[in-house]
Amino acid sequence: MAIHGLWVINKAGGLVYQRNFGDGLPHLTSNEYLVLAGTLHGIHAITSRLSPTGSSSGAQEICGETFKLTILLTATGTKFVLLTSLVEPNAGSVLQKVYEVYADAVMKNPFHTPEMPVRSEGFDARITALIGSG
């Protein structure tokens, strides 16, 4: 029951927000996170084409042996990715709340440029309130 990290990926596959919580996973350099986010964006697109039965969404949950990534794709193409331990039943609802916070603190901010990295203290503070500090 631990949340390791949160990513926000814009519709072009760029990482616009990344934050670690705790030391459950090693902290990588920001460049490595950018590459991983780009990879995930591509994989997500391919997974929706591999469906053996009719149409499919992209990957929603990717599991390793000790952690998983839960992915929320919004209608506008922004992806919210939560890195958690394997047993984290409410990862989906946390992501939904992150989306709400993002809509309030980022998209309604007149000084924010769409598709650009999120640098907003308000967003940071509200994420801290939601998930905890890290």
Binding site: L36, T39, I43, S57
Partner: peptide, 24 residues
């Protein structure tokens, strides 16, 4: 790609196990 990604994120030799979409 997922195998490499999981390995990178975990920092050790962790294996990718599975992923899930809405239909498979």
């Amino acid at each position: 790609s997922l195998r490499n990604m999981v390995r990178k994120l975990s920092g050790k030799d962790e294996q990718f196990v599975n992923y899930k979409t809405s239909s498979y």
